[in-house]
Design a binder for these strands. Structure first.
Length: 473
RNA sequence: GCCCCCAUCGUCUAUCGGUUAGGACAGGAGAUUCUCAUUCUUCAAAGCGGGGUUCGAUUCCCCGUGGGGGCACCA
């Protein structure tokens, strides 16, 4: 059992996004890699901006991603631990105690109702052009941050700062350090946006007479278009979004672990176990990575393709169920799909699995299997009906397929029958394929025609073929 | 403005002084398949600039430039 204790410390002030997910993941990976402890701590000291709803989003997202926490709020089998409570809003007593220690050491003072942390060094007043106000600068000794990823970073912290607001609530820098001490955190793995704050934190650790933990500031994820880091408002930023769209969490984890880290070599698709085994802090990059939705979609497809059929079927069912429950557009249709015969559903999903890039394509891709009122792609329709003799081809197919002489029980027989028909007319399978597909599915692309014919059954196929033929009347 | 971090194909990245600078996504072309997707083959695509150090720099150092972050009684 290693002594490593890491923490993920989000604040419930908004939706959980991909950057937070990766920070959580790296912490989780490091804990698992070292056999250490992964702590979830909720930094909700800003009462005005926190909400219970966003707290649930954090819990749900972490669990969906498979990043269970060893210590933290107790939710569905995760959490507990002897360093609680794990919500900062419930740790007032701890902060008061630590504040007293700082006061006793003469490292605080009151100003305008707030409590400030006093740096050590000579003071002088300076007018700050940028902030347009007079500030007191302190000639403090440089703070050294020995970062596991960045190496040695030196920074001068030259202004006292508030640690307890005038309303009595402690500030982030203070509670963050106090909790890292109280919870015996050994490694602080967090975004590079905190690198500049680290000097404040180190100063605080030193004031408490505690050796700072090992810092590891990981690069940021940049938005895929335009300048700046990824934020909650950006396209593709929200974990909840991927969850709703039926992304596989293991694919998402695989993708985001590759943003700013690599296992060495050319491999990209890695199992969770391999990632845990290979992950380490020195392997983390120093430069920011731009988010790429296309590559992530590709990773998701690879995972979908690799799923055992039953597993794919189960995920697909869960996806349709969530669509039906969500109640948005298509909920009624999804409910219909969920209510379909299980064996039939499984057979349809068997056709779809090798074809779709994501579960979210399933409703449109399989609509015609589950109801007679399915959408028709008008562009495809115009194109297919615009050439050859569609009406004649449809009529021939209706005659062929409605005949009891045509075996409708296996794909090969159906294919052979249509090929024979084509040959007799001096045509190819392709001359029937497009128009038949349009008639039966409303689309120009989809699973193998003969396989979907067999699944649909003779009656529905013939009816749909005849219906389109009649429409051409 | 001040402080900190970073810098290889469009994007994610490999390389830890000597390579035809490799892989993946995206893009182009082709093959296969009843369409589509997959798969396979293939093409195009990179060391920011300038100084050093060195027999030799993508790699080490410095300066620019560019990108990112921070500078709250937010976290």
């Amino acid at each position: 059992m290693s002594q490593v204790r890491v923490r993920f410390a989000p604040s419930p002030t908004g939706f959980f996004h991909i950057g937070s997910a990766r920070t959580a993941l790296f912490n989780w990976l490091y804990a698992r890699h070292t056999g250490g402890v992964f702590v979830l701590r909720i930094e909700d000291t800003d009462a005005a901006r926190n909400s219970e709803r966003f707290l649930n989003v954090i819990h749900d997202s972490l669990r969906w991603l498979g990043l269970g926490w060893d210590e933290g709020p107790q939710v569905g089998g995760c959490g507990g631990g002897e360093h609680g409570p794990y919500r900062q809003s419930e740790r007032g007593a701890v902060y008061r105690e630590y504040l007293e220690r700082l006061k006793a050491a003469g490292r605080t003072y009151e100003k305008e109702g707030a409590t400030w942390f006093r740096l050590i060094g000579e003071r002088h007043e300076v007018y700050d052009e940028h902030r347009q106000k007079t500030v007191t600068k302190v000639k403090a000794a440089p703070v050294v941050i020995d970062d596991a990823i960045r190496g040695r970073v030196e920074r001068v912290e030259d202004e006292d700062f508030v640690i307890v607001r005038s309303d009595g609530n402690p500030v982030f820098h203070f509670v963050n350090v106090v909790d890292d001490i109280a919870m015996r955190i050994t490694h602080v793995i967090r975004g590079e946006d905190h690198l500049s704050n680290a000097s404040k934190h180190v100063a605080l650790f030193e004031a408490f007479g505690v050796k700072p933990p090992i810092f590891a500031h990981i690069p940021l994820i940049l938005k895929q278009n335009g300048p700046g880091k990824m934020s909650k408002r950006d396209q593709g930023a929200l974990i909840e979004e991927y969850q709703k769209r039926g992304y596989l969490p293991e694919a998402l984890v695989n993708f985001i672990c590759l943003l700013g880290w690599n296992p060495g070599g050319d491999r990209e698709k890695l199992s969770r176990e391999e990632i845990v085994r290979l992950f380490d802090l020195p392997g983390v990059n120093q430069s920011n990575a731009r988010f790429d939705e296309k590559k992530m979609a590709h990773m998701n497809m690879l995972y979908l393709l690799a799923l055992p059929a039953e597993e794919f079927c189960a995920r697909a069912r869960a996806f349709f169920e969530s669509l039906a429950t969500e109640g948005g557009a298509g909920a009624a249709e999804a409910a219909g799909v969920v209510g379909a015969d299980a064996a039939y559903f499984a057979a349809v999903m068997g056709l779809a699995q090798p074809k779709v890039k994501g579960l979210e394509e399933l409703p449109a891709y399989t609509a015609y299997f589950f109801r007679e009122e399915y959408p028709v792609d008008e562009k495809a329709k115009a194109k297919v009906l615009g050439k050859g003799e569609p009406k004649a081809r449809l009529a021939e197919l209706v005659e062929l397929l409605s005949s009891p002489a045509t075996d409708f029980t296996n794909d090969a027989a159906i294919e052979a029958a249509i090929k024979a028909l084509a040959e007799a007319r001096g045509l190819g399978f392709g001359d029937y394929q497009a128009v038949a597909r349009l008639a039966v599915t409303g689309l120009s692309a989809g699973p193998s025609l003969t396989r979907l014919f067999r699944l649909l059954g003779r009656e529905r196929v013939v009816t749909r073929l005849a219906r389109l033929a009649a429409g051409l009347g």
